[in-house]
Write a protein that binds this DNA or RNA. Sequence first.
DNA 1: CTCCTGCAAG
DNA 2: CTTGCCGGAG
Length: 217
Amino acid sequence: MLGDILLDIYRWLFDHFGPQGWWPAEDPFEVCLGAILTQNTNWGNVKRAIENLKRENLLSPRALREISVESLASLIRPSGYYNVKARRVKNFVSFLTDRYEGDINNLRKEDPLELRRKLLSIKGLGPETTDSILLYALDLPFFVVDAYTHRILCRHGLIPEVISYDELQEIFHQNLVRDVPLYKEFHALFVACGKTYCKKQSPRCDDCPLSTLDQKF
DNA sequence: CTCCTGCAAG
DNA sequence: CTTGCCGGAG
């Protein structure tokens, strides 16, 4: 029932926007950095920050382990919240080097739910950042919930205004097949729809590919 | 001015 | 539950 509606949403969005090809990054570690840097931040600004790190050959756990948090902060400045994010990147890199030999692939040896719990214990990694890493860097089937997901489903009356991250994620896990490519594309499509149509202010409901959804109730 | 693929601290 | 973090684009 709800699964059918979610699949309908997916199809309409996919038909309208086409494949999004997320996550835009060269390797899994870059995905992790991007996931932290894009917290409440426009991706365009994150790209600048990552370009700075690339230019300085700092896109590796080893290199980021060495650099001072102050230097790191100045390099990621364009992404905003640079002081807190530099600390958060440092926390993640320490976690990776101290416990997994700085190799992102060693994370795959963990039980997925246990790994999620451990990532969440890192200061600066909340549920969305963690699930982005699990899904887009490690190809594990965890649905990434974000502000767009909530806004779109809420405006169509499919979920209550007040709902926790885990509760909303469970809706996807319980009602959709645990398919990694589907989860990757679906989240990216929610973002595309949220940015283009289901905007926070002055949403463009008339042109929205999901406009027929409301008539089902 | 608001918003952006949040999160932790107060 | 509210606030601080913050640059860049529209």
